[in-house]
Amino acid sequence: MLRVCLAGEFDMSVGDALSRALLEAAGRPGVTRVLVDLTHTRLIDSHAIAGLVAGYQAATSAGRSFTVVNGRGLVQQVLDITGLSEVLCAQP
């Protein structure tokens, strides 16, 4: 398992870097699961959502799991509103 911990705000200014990092994580040799931890993430926008979706698609295409955990407040609301919490987030 590879844990990717995100901290701070993820918007247009870092959207491309987030996508690249998650694509790299999903393609890393020996990785069977990518776990994205949002504990310290305060904001995600559409660019961050696109990065999460790209990471998910890359991981599942490679036969690996991709899960987002610990979204809180506004971050979790964005995941819920977009419907991505049902696809990306670990279910209780």
Rank of each mutant, 00 (worst) to 15 (best):
Y56W: 14
G63Q: 08
T67N: 10
Q57A: 13
A58K: 01
T67I: 13
R64N: 05
V53W: 10
Q91L: 12
E24K: 13
C5I: 00
D37E: 11
E86L: 13
S46V: 06
D80C: 13
M12H: 15
L23C: 07
V14G: 04
H47F: 08
S13R: 14
A21E: 15
A54K: 02
V87N: 06
R3W: 04
V4E: 01
R42I: 00
G8R: 00
L2D: 02
V34A: 06
P92S: 13
A26G: 00
D37Q: 11
T82H: 12
A7E: 10
A17H: 14
I81D: 08
L84F: 15
Q57W: 07
A7K: 12
L18Q: 01
R33A: 14
V75T: 08
T41L: 12
L88G: 01
T67G: 06
L52H: 07
H40I: 01
A54Q: 03
V53K: 10
A54G: 01
A90F: 05
N70A: 14
D16S: 08
V68M: 08
A25I: 01
A21W: 04
D16A: 09
I44D: 02
P92R: 13
T67E: 14
V75I: 09
L79N: 05
A21G: 09
G15D: 00
L74I: 06
S46N: 11
F10W: 10
L52F: 12
V4Y: 03
A17C: 11
D37H: 13
M1L: 13
A62G: 01
Q76N: 14
V78T: 10
S19V: 02
V69S: 03
L2P: 02
R28L: 12
V68Y: 14
G63W: 05
L43K: 12
T82Q: 12
R20D: 15
A7V: 02
S65W: 03
H40R: 15
L88R: 02
S13W: 12
I81Q: 04
D45N: 03
M12A: 15
A59Y: 09
L35V: 12
P92E: 11
G71V: 05
A17I: 09
Q57I: 09
E86F: 11
E9K: 06
T82E: 14
G55S: 09
H40Q: 14
D80G: 09
A48N: 05
L18G: 00
M1W: 10
L23G: 01
I44Q: 08
A17G: 11
